[in-house]
Design a protein around this nucleic acid. Structure first.
Lengths: 197, 197
DNA sequence: TCATATTAGTACTATACCGTACTAATTATT
DNA sequence: AATAATTAGTACGGTATAGTACTAATATGA
């Protein structure tokens, strides 16, 4: 009846999930370790038992978000019975639903956290960079399917399409936050697809 | 022979320009008022003579960047002898030159500063939102010219094009920083234009 | 000239917050 | 049962930093 089969201490998981939300909502710099302790209900001493520093916790949070989005995107890419555009739209719908749930605060955790990092290279920043380099091929594969199935015309290569799409949607996520307009995500995606026909 | 005709105290200007760079490079939260004082060479007491708080200084910095980019974009939009694409490319070239000058740190000051702001609405955040709402019509006008001159086909409206372009380039700026790849800006723009032909 | 605005310097306060130390209880694990 | 891992609690140290107080010098403008 144990929830926790893999020896991951329960509190460690709670702390990661709590601070993932807090860092995302309030920002890394505006979230104190005492905040994390209070909101999670885990004692501060226990937090420092699991994480040697706040930055160490940040790295764990980034791993958490990486895994979270990796799964989300995997679902979209491998639902091969649907058209590429409908897979894109359903993926973005789940994204924009989450964003409106959090009242337009915090569009993309990776960019948000990267921008809140210090100038110096850190493990956190490296992990974020790595996430994006891993992400692009997934989108390229998606558009390759779209080209192969004749859904999009091959005016530009699948590589360019995937890269451009990722870039565009990243911009849409951020601008939807800055302009408080969650509809931007879907309209951007639709316009993008229109240009590909 | 006075540089300073409009009664703007010299030090005030120096402080704004210095902190514009520091906030951009190091980040708002990682820049102390003592840093600003040391780098600018203006005494801290004098800084607080001109700005009642650090956040007040931030607002001035955002106004500075707004004006800076407004001018840059104005030049691009109203150089009507050139083709739209070449105006876009030359505008983006000046952008990416600046970015490589600062060694890929700090892509878009507005997004960077917005992401570093606290959750609560602030004057700074409002000014950034305002900047982007003002920015979009300028790009729309640019693409309207492109359609009118037959440079782009009207597969989507000039409104959609302008909005999509702004979104895409914003994403390119950010991802060029996160992935440390300044070429992304130009390649993104070129691919974007290719899709419009 | 005289008032006002701008400047530097120095010292200081208040506080938020990361991280540590230590104790002791409780919960796995073997 | 014994050992190790996980947990809470409490208190505190150290430091960075926003902002203030006050004095006094210098520039500016009327």
């Amino acid at each position: 009846m144990k929830v926790n089969q893999h020896k991951i201490p329960l509190n460690k998981k709670i702390v990661i999930e709590t601070s993932a939300q807090l860092f995302f909502d309030k920002g890394y710099g505006y979230t104190s370790m005492d905040d994390v302790s209070m909101v999670s209900g885990v004692s501060k001493s226990n937090i420092y038992y699991h994480f040697k520093s706040k930055e160490d916790l940040l790295v764990a949070v980034i791993e958490y978000w990486s895994e979270y989005y990796r799964k989300l995107i995997e679902q979209a890419v491998y639902a091969k019975t649907l058209s590429v555009e409908s897979r894109i739209i359903s993926f973005l719908n789940s994204l924009s639903m989450e964003i409106s749930k959090r009242e337009y605060k915090g569009s993309c955790p990776f960019i948000t956290l990267y921008m809140q990092s210090p100038m110096e290279p850190t493990d956190a920043k490296r992990k974020i960079t790595f996430f994006f380099t891993r992400l692009e091929p997934a989108f390229v594969e998606l558009f390759q399917q779209g080209i192969d199935q004749g859904e999009f015309q091959g005016k530009i290569t699948a590589e360019s399409m995937g890269s451009l799409f990722l870039t565009t949607m990243e911009g849409a996520l951020l601008l939807s936050e800055v302009t408080q307009d969650s509809s931007k995500i879907i309209t951007t995606a639709k316009n993008f697809c229109k240009m590909l026909y």
